Amino acid sequence: TFTSYQLEELEKVFQKTHYPDVYAREQLAMRTDLTEARVQVWFQNRRA
């Protein structure tokens, strides 16, 4: 599960791009204290 802060950050990036590159995902992962893999999976699920 994600915190409301994490979801907010993820959604913010999703609004800009549905396909963030690895750099964007790593920045987001650091900001949200998630792994890059978790961020990647979240985007895959969000796009589905």
Results as ranks from 00 to 15, higher is better:
45 N>K: 11
41 V>N: 14
20 P>L: 07
20 P>W: 02
15 Q>C: 07
19 Y>G: 01
31 R>F: 07
27 Q>S: 08
33 D>C: 14
10 L>M: 14
8 E>N: 09
14 F>N: 15
40 Q>R: 14
25 R>H: 03
15 Q>Y: 08
4 S>I: 12
48 A>T: 08
15 Q>P: 00
21 D>H: 05
23 Y>P: 06
36 E>M: 15
10 L>P: 00
15 Q>A: 12
25 R>C: 09
6 Q>E: 04
23 Y>N: 14
43 F>L: 03
23 Y>D: 10
44 Q>L: 06
8 E>H: 08
29 A>I: 08
9 E>V: 06
37 A>R: 09
11 E>Y: 06
30 M>N: 13
33 D>Q: 13
43 F>H: 00
3 T>A: 06
19 Y>W: 14
6 Q>M: 04
38 R>F: 12
7 L>D: 04
24 A>M: 14
39 V>C: 03
19 Y>Q: 15
45 N>C: 13
26 E>K: 14
11 E>D: 04
47 R>D: 02
36 E>L: 11
29 A>P: 01
24 A>H: 07
21 D>Q: 03
44 Q>M: 10
46 R>C: 05
45 N>P: 00
30 M>I: 12
5 Y>A: 09
3 T>C: 06
39 V>G: 01
27 Q>N: 07
12 K>H: 15
21 D>P: 05
32 T>F: 07
4 S>A: 13
17 T>C: 13
17 T>H: 06
28 L>G: 00
48 A>Y: 07
7 L>I: 13
33 D>H: 12
26 E>G: 09
27 Q>M: 12
37 A>K: 08
8 E>V: 08
42 W>Y: 04
8 E>Y: 10
7 L>S: 05
10 L>Y: 00
43 F>I: 01
46 R>H: 04
25 R>W: 04
44 Q>T: 08
25 R>Y: 07
4 S>P: 14
43 F>G: 00
29 A>H: 02
12 K>W: 05
16 K>A: 11
31 R>N: 06
42 W>K: 00
26 E>M: 14
27 Q>L: 12
20 P>S: 01
21 D>N: 10
26 E>D: 06
47 R>E: 03
46 R>W: 02
3 T>S: 10
3 T>F: 06
4 S>E: 13
7 L>V: 09
13 V>C: 08
6 Q>C: 03
5 Y>Q: 09
41 V>I: 14
3 T>P: 02
23 Y>H: 13
11 E>F: 03
48 A>E: 11
48 A>N: 11
14 F>V: 01
39 V>K: 01
20 P>T: 01
22 V>E: 11
18 H>C: 11
7 L>A: 14
12 K>A: 08
30 M>A: 12
2 F>M: 10
12 K>Q: 06
38 R>M: 15
45 N>M: 13
19 Y>M: 04
6 Q>S: 02
4 S>N: 10
18 H>N: 08
10 L>Q: 00
2 F>P: 04
46 R>D: 01
27 Q>I: 09
42 W>Q: 00
42 W>E: 01
12 K>P: 01
31 R>Q: 08
47 R>L: 08
1 T>M: 14
16 K>P: 09
17 T>F: 07
22 V>D: 10
37 A>M: 08
38 R>T: 15
17 T>P: 00
34 L>Q: 03
1 T>G: 13
45 N>D: 14
45 N>W: 14
37 A>D: 12
21 D>C: 06
43 F>E: 00
34 L>P: 11
43 F>N: 00
15 Q>F: 06
43 F>W: 01
10 L>H: 01
7 L>H: 06
44 Q>W: 06
43 F>R: 00
34 L>T: 05
8 E>S: 10
36 E>A: 10
22 V>K: 15
10 L>T: 00
5 Y>S: 08
28 L>E: 00
10 L>R: 00
14 F>M: 01
33 D>K: 12
46 R>G: 02
47 R>S: 04
13 V>D: 02
31 R>M: 09
44 Q>C: 12
7 L>W: 10
13 V>F: 08
40 Q>M: 14
1 T>L: 12
8 E>K: 09
1 T>N: 12
24 A>L: 14
24 A>R: 04
20 P>E: 01
16 K>D: 08
34 L>F: 01
36 E>Q: 08
26 E>S: 09
17 T>I: 06
9 E>A: 06
11 E>C: 05
3 T>V: 03
26 E>A: 11
16 K>N: 09
22 V>R: 15
5 Y>P: 04
4 S>D: 09
13 V>L: 15
32 T>I: 15
4 S>M: 11
24 A>W: 06
38 R>H: 10
33 D>E: 11
44 Q>V: 09
48 A>R: 11
46 R>Y: 02
16 K>F: 10
17 T>S: 11
28 L>H: 02
12 K>V: 07
18 H>W: 13
37 A>Q: 10
21 D>E: 15
9 E>N: 04
48 A>H: 09
20 P>G: 02
17 T>D: 13
33 D>N: 14
12 K>E: 11
46 R>S: 03
41 V>F: 14
24 A>Q: 14
12 K>R: 10
46 R>I: 02
28 L>K: 00
24 A>S: 09
19 Y>P: 15
38 R>K: 12
